[in-house]
Amino acid sequence: MTSSYHSPRRADAARATRAAILASARAMFLERGYADVPVSDIAKGARVAIQTVYVSVGSKAAILAALLQPAIGSPILDETLTAVAATNDPGEVIDRTADGTRRANELHWDMLYGLFRHAPAEPAARQVHHDAVTAYLAALRTVVDRLTDLTALAPGLTPERALDLLWFHLGQSAWFTLVGDRGWSFDEAQPWLAGAARHALLDPAPIQRVRRRDGGSPRTG
């Protein structure tokens, strides 16, 4: 009975400890850079023992992964891919992808640009970065698959090359370059990147053949 009574308090305390560790790490990573923050400093900032950091969250790379999880697992991803699947207009597919990637990057901008505009050198952190990029690319591959299904890719453009071009125009580095490095606003960057992506990926013919999901006749537009 006593153990059951106190377990919610222990759970609350554990969550509060984890939150304090992540907040400490986040502030230090952004201020000093991931490589220059030892776990001992994170523990000191969170007012916990070093061992508590490892028990509550894990290694420094695990802390980084936990901080990035809201961006990687953002519901914006599912919203965007659902919208992409629902439209038969190739241009709108690109526009919705630009909107989704813009919102995801903008929402988590300080962490993404602050930590990943330069790939981390530490192997464990590099793996975290690799996993984040892999998830991003998987989402863009779904977009390319939709454009392929709509027979909308430019003549001679393979799906793999289309993925490369979509990453070039709407991947993290595109937003990092225009918004972070060159000072564009997101409102300025989004339509330009979307337009460039449409030009690079889509069939320029005035009549786009679009297969309807129900197998009906193609439409023009």
Rank of each mutant, 00 (worst) to 15 (best):
R9F: 15
D164P: 13
P155V: 05
T2E: 15
A14S: 12
I63T: 08
L201F: 11
F29A: 02
G100W: 02
A19I: 04
L30F: 03
G180Q: 13
L153A: 00
G45L: 05
P8G: 06
L22P: 01
S173N: 11
R103T: 06
T82L: 08
A154R: 15
G33K: 12
A71F: 11
L165D: 00
H6Q: 15
L201T: 06
A27N: 15
A104P: 03
L137H: 15
A119S: 11
A35I: 13
A25G: 05
S56H: 04
W192I: 15
T177E: 14
A138K: 06
F186S: 01
W109T: 01
G73I: 02
R198Q: 02
V39F: 09
V133H: 07
G33W: 10
A25K: 03
D203T: 00
S4P: 05
V48D: 00
D131T: 10
S173C: 14
L64F: 12
P155C: 10
L163N: 05
Q51H: 13
R209F: 11
A20S: 08
H129E: 02
R182L: 10
G216T: 14
R18N: 08
D110W: 04
S3W: 06
V55C: 11
V84G: 08
W192K: 08
H129L: 09
A154D: 13
V144H: 09
P123L: 05
D41F: 12
A16F: 09
W184N: 14
Q69K: 10
L137M: 13
P218Y: 15
L178K: 07
P218G: 04
G171K: 07
R96Y: 04
L165T: 07
A25Y: 13
D131V: 13
R96I: 06
I76P: 00
Q51S: 09
S173F: 13
W184K: 15
L140P: 06
S217A: 10
F116H: 06
L77N: 13
P204F: 04
P120R: 01
T80W: 08
F29G: 07
L137D: 14
H118G: 06
R10E: 10
L22T: 02
R213K: 12
D95L: 01
L153W: 06
G100R: 04
A98N: 01
K44F: 07
Q190M: 11
Y34M: 13
G58Y: 15
V84L: 05
R117M: 14
F176H: 14
I63A: 06
G58H: 01
L115M: 10
A132H: 10
G171I: 00
A197N: 15
D214C: 11
T158V: 01
A49S: 07
L137F: 15
R161P: 06
G180P: 01
E160L: 02
H129M: 13
Y34G: 05
V179L: 01
V143R: 12
